[in-house]
């Protein structure tokens, strides 16, 4: 049944997030067909009405388009896909910064911490 949903957050928003991540990871590529509403409902274990709402919302955001009688497809518009990629990055960054600030780290400590970690990771990769 795939990953569990957080019951206290709207499921259609969680589905939008999952599909967006799949697009950014290129598991779903530009122009690719999404599963039908029913297929998506079954594979994710949610109500078809919720999937319908997810697809409508994604369509409103321009991320997918519905072609009559054919189904729902990932957009091929490069600017929408690249801004989706930017948005997800920004969201992660904001989340990270907020968490770090809440624990009392300064901006400098965060940046240094990131650089140090990436440096270390780079070193171990080269070994």
């Amino acid at each position: 049944m795939g990953e569990e949903f957080n019951p206290s957050k709207p499921i259609y928003l969680q589905l939008i997030e999952r599909i967006s991540h799949q697009i950014v990871r290129k598991e779903l590529s530009a122009g690719e067909k999404l599963p039908s509403v029913r297929e998506m409902a079954i594979s994710s274990g949610v109500n078809p009405n919720t999937v319908q709402r997810t697809y409508s919302e994604l369509e409103r955001m321009g991320i997918v388009e519905t072609r009559r009688g054919q189904g729902t497809f990932v957009t091929e518009e490069e600017n929408i896909l690249s801004s989706l990629r930017e948005n997800l990055k920004e969201k992660q960054v904001i989340q990270f910064i907020n968490d770090m600030r809440e624990m009392g780290y300064s901006d400098r400590e965060m940046v240094e911490g990131l650089q140090e970690y990436l440096q270390k990771e780079g070193d171990t990769k080269h070994d």
Partner: peptide, 13 residues
């Protein structure tokens, strides 16, 4: 879904 939006809670909570 409205419950989740308004109350930030699922049915069980």
């Amino acid at each position: 879904e409205e419950l989740r939006i308004q109350e930030k809670a699922g049915i069980l909570d």
